[in-house]
Design a protein around this nucleic acid. Structure first.
Lengths: 193, 193
DNA sequence: CGAGATGTTCTGCGTGGCAGACTATCTGCT
DNA sequence: AGCAGATAGTCTGCCACGCAGAACATCTCG
């Protein structure tokens, strides 16, 4: 199956009953945001009782699969602020699902291990999230589902590598991060007096 | 090209230089989140001088393409909180890019029109965001790029329709939204005294 | 005519993202 | 051996967003 690469100026609108417009259909950001919110909604339901919800799951999954990772490595892998990770690990530790272990060769470092209880729960969470993911991808047949997951996975792993090497990204793409910033700080939400 | 539909239990790890693990590779949420953050980073740079950044762009694009939408319709289309939309429209209006117009048949309603200045800027923003999107999708050849965009678009339009009809989603998928919520409110970020 | 619903705006609360400061620790160089 | 610079983790403060509900004006329907 071949597709023309859509751009926002040339996308053929479809006729599905919806008020959205062709311009949004062609917008990568809108599509990514919409699918992501859809996933988050399903995942929040699936793992509502886990500290940190879907994010707590990702910590467990990452920590269970690898050699013991550091807190900072986990935060970077998962795109979580290091302060937020500090408190998320507190919650998971308090729930008995992980434990922080000092690194014998570097006393600054804490490494994150999943407990037996955490591994048991992880198996159940895997099933729940499979269900949530099936729901999100339910309009696809098996072939499209496989294709979409594989393409998304490739993008994500590349994006992850790029986040770890931002200079490389600038060199590769020629996008300079020196566009002007907003001249004034963004104002408070409330209507100014 | 055929792919097996990956599940998190059976994904073959690849050998790319990265500390991420096979479990995360198979996690739809991780992949969506990572790609989304990558997009947002590129898009923030591309439209840094626009009120609301990428979100401001989506308001302009949606408002420019359709018959005049209401504030609430735009908020729902774009997945933006209606309070946030109120202030975002304030910013865009103050910048001279849109104007709110009263609906002659319903005085509660304001409809959002893009000004001439807004339309001019939109053309430029389209180009900048094309560039940002090309960056995000740069590892794909034309065929994969087209495939990915089309699959993502179909998912997003379906998700959008589902968000507009949540009862239909529950009926279709059998996922009940009554899993237990966390028993205690989530604690404050700061360490308790 | 009145009850109920809706669009928009406002308020308050909780959380995440971010940047920087601080402390303890490590590495590499002189 | 000592010191400068960097790093891991924690803490603080600020800002923006998401959310829910209230208030007001307005609309629809019985």
């Amino acid at each position: 199956m071949a597709f023309m690469a859509a751009s926002r100026a040339s996308t053929a609108g479809d006729t599905e009953a919806s008020s959205r417009c062709a311009a949004l259909d062609a917008d990568l950001g809108w599509a990514l945001g919409t699918v992501f919110r859809s996933y988050v909604k399903a995942a929040n339901v699936a793992v509502a009782d886990l500290p940190g919800g879907p994010r707590g799951y990702q910590v467990l999954a990452a920590a269970a699969s690898d050699a013991l990772g550091t807190q900072l490595a986990l935060a970077n892998q998962l795109g979580v602020d290091r302060t937020v990770m500090t408190y998320l690990l507190d919650d998971l530790e308090r729930a008995g699902l992980i434990e922080r272990r000092p690194d014998p060769s570097d006393r600054r470092v804490r490494r994150v291990a999943v407990t037996d209880e955490g591994r048991k729960l992880l198996a159940e969470l895997d099933q729940r999230l499979d269900e949530a993911e099936d729901h999100v991808l339910s309009i696809f047949d098996d072939a499209d589902r496989g294709t979409f997951r594989e393409l998304l996975r490739r993008l994500a792993t590349h994006a992850q590598d790029s986040l770890a090497h931002p200079c490389q990204v600038v060199e590769e793409t020629g996008i300079a991060e020196d566009r002007p910033s907003p001249a004034t700080p963004r104002r408070a939400r409330r209507r100014q007096a």
